[in-house]
């Protein structure tokens, strides 16, 4: 992880760590904080706790997002302090708008059209949401500009050494974000043989051809989750509300769990009961016949 971040994440970059509730690479976010990257433009549909931590650590110049809350709990306090104190630049869309930005970026088009935003105040506060007249029907459609990040980081259940990456469960917008990006870092729970990938090719979301680095980091998505590996740590998400309410508490957390550990393995050693509490149960699927 140290090498991948040192090599592929640079000061001033447009950085995406995607994953909708599921498979959020906290391990990569923490490494970026440890390496003290600055002036990043952080993009994600839901900034979640990881961007709250990165904003608090001073990594972010700007945030591009569509829903900035603590899911199921309430506010992201570092984000709110930064916005209410006007120390963080923001560019705001809706979820569909962000998805459309990644879709345009992945298809290497300059913008994407969508039927959205009519009657809302969002275009008034974000001049990058524009409109175009359809040349076939004359209908006015909203447009959002392509988002092509410098680097996208995706956590996944498994990949082979080349970076052929398989994901199951909620898929979010990871495929589009990865294809839109200049560089892609894949972080996985398990490294598997290429034969495992080839035995079930429909499950591959990201091919090795677009991957710059593969990092093996078990539990790298905690406190988010990895379907089939470990559950979401809802207790931590609820606890974050108290930890982050004052900047002192948040700094203390970063000192202990981010700056105070070298890597994910040390982070897990500090919390010996975590694995037992969150380990996933068994729910196997029936296989299919790929023969011909």
């Amino acid at each position: 992880m140290q090498d991948a971040v040192a090599r592929h994440v640079r000061d001033g970059d447009v950085v995406v760590i995607e994953g909708f509730t599921h498979l959020i690479s906290f391990a990569a976010g923490h490494e970026i904080i440890r390496q003290r990257r600055r002036d990043l433009t952080l993009c994600r549909l839901t900034p979640d706790l990881i961007y709250d931590q990165m904003i608090a650590a001073g990594c972010a110049k700007k945030l591009v997002f569509s829903w900035a809350g603590n899911p199921g709990v309430g506010s992201l306090h570092a984000f709110r302090r930064a916005v209410e104190g006007q120390t963080l630049e923001i560019e705001e869309y809706s979820h569909f708008g962000m998805v459309a930005r990644f879709s345009a970026g992945a298809a290497r088009l300059p913008f994407w059209t969508l039927r959205d935003y009519a009657g809302t105040d969002l275009p008034r506060v974000n001049p990058r949401i524009k409109a175009v007249t359809c040349p076939y029907t004359g209908e006015e459609l909203a447009t959002v500009p392509a988002l092509n990040p410098d680097v996208t980081i995706v956590h996944a259940q498994r990949a082979d050494a080349q970076g052929n990456t398989q994901i199951w469960g909620l898929l979010g917008v990871q495929k589009e974000a990865a294809f839109a990006s200049q560089r892609v870092i894949v972080v996985v729970e398990e490294l598997v043989d290429e034969r495992v990938i080839r035995s079930d090719p429909n499950r591959t979301l990201i091919p090795a051809t677009i991957v710059s680095a593969v990092v093996v980091e078990p539990w790298g998505a905690h406190p988010s989750y990895a379907q089939g590996y470990y559950d979401r740590d809802n207790e931590f998400y609820i606890g974050w509300d108290t930890i982050s309410r004052e900047s002192a508490g948040l700094s203390h957390y970063l000192d202990e769990f981010v700056y105070g550990v070298r890597d994910r393995a040390e982070y897990m050693q500090k919390q010996p009961r975590l694995a037992e509490r969150l380990k996933a149960g068994e729910q196997r699927c029936a296989g299919v016949n790929y023969g011909f």
Binding site: L45, T46, F65, S66, W67, A68, G69, S75, L76, F79, R80, V83, E84, E92, Y93, S94, H95, F96, L114, R115, D116, Y117, A118, G119, T120, L122
Partner: peptide
């Protein structure tokens, strides 16, 4: 803002 709330998420397009 007096209070910064989470934002739209999918709400704008659901409403539409």
């Amino acid at each position: 803002p007096k209070v910064r709330l989470p934002g739209s998420g999918g709400a704008a397009e659901i409403a539409i």
